[in-house]
């Protein structure tokens, strides 16, 4: 699914008519792509889309399927919204975005129902609830609605990947500790006593709390290291934004 959605890297000539976009072309494509993965990770840094992050990550398989579905919806809506960004009247843009997102979610819902019925059942209402995932609407409003198609899709791919990574971290921790398995394969043998609490709701809150603690500890340690080698790409991105 991801292969057919990801476009070739944007070419300067492709947006020749777009004066504003041409000036912004100073931003290398990899900055758009990479920022969502770590530096502006939608879940771990921006704290958006927490409902699915906590609700469906009790096993790795669920997390992966949810991540792929959200990725598809995010990239598809960004593609459509940025294509029509000049035709969508400003007053009804949010409603239009939601309509576009809901269409893609409906597609994803039917696809999952047909392809992985077992996991679709386990995910419950959370597939349909991708519609109200703030990450997706947030990216349309903050990025796809005002940037050319190539950059918007790159941004969506990066953010989608960031969301998947966050789900995968949560899912792995919770499944390994909570069931002693990874993707259903037993890791520690029959003598392991699973921490059942980790796959139950409280485990979701505790796991995310520990992940956030780790990140804030890591960031706190970071400035000293970062000062020595300030990445130049970030400075460029800041100026463009």
């Amino acid at each position: 699914m991801s292969q057919e959605m990801s476009p070739p890297p944007p070419h300067p000539a492709a947006h020749g008519a777009d004066g504003l976009a041409e000036r912004r072309r100073a931003v290398p494509p990899n900055v758009d792509l990479v920022k969502g993965v770590w530096r502006e990770n939608p879940v771990l840094i921006q704290l958006l889309g927490l409902c699915p992050t906590l609700a469906v990550t009790n096993s790795v398989a669920n997390s992966v399927v949810m991540g792929i579905a959200t990725f598809f919806v995010l990239v598809g809506s960004s593609l459509l919204v940025s294509t029509f960004r000049r035709r969508i009247p400003n007053e009804v843009r949010i409603a239009t975005y939601i309509l576009i997102i809901a269409t893609f979610v409906t597609i994803a819902e039917f696809a999952l129902q047909a392809l992985v019925p077992g996991i679709y059942k386990a995910l419950g209402p959370f597939v349909a609830l991708i519609v109200v995932n703030c990450i997706i609407l947030g990216r349309q409003e903050a990025f796809a609605g005002r940037n050319p198609v190539g950059r918007s899709v790159l941004d969506a791919v990066g953010m989608g990947a960031g969301f998947m990574i966050a789900l995968l971290i949560m899912g792995s921790v919770r499944e390994i500790l909570g069931s002693g398995t990874f993707l259903g394969v037993s890791l520690f043998g029959p003598r392991y006593e699973p921490w059942v609490i980790m796959v139950l709701p409280p485990g979701g809150f505790f796991t995310l709390a520990f992940v956030l603690l780790t990140i804030s500890w890591w960031k706190r340690r970071q400035p000293a290291l970062a000062k020595a080698a300030e990445p130049r790409g970030l400075v460029v991105a800041e100026r463009a934004a």
């Binding site: 704290l47 709701p201 409280p202 485990g203 979701g204 809150f205 505790f206 995310l208 709390a209 956030l212 603690l213 804030s216």
Partner: peptide
Amino acid sequence: TALVLFIAGSLS
């Protein structure tokens, strides 16, 4: 947020 999540976990 981490603190709020710990509280939420205990409530849960």
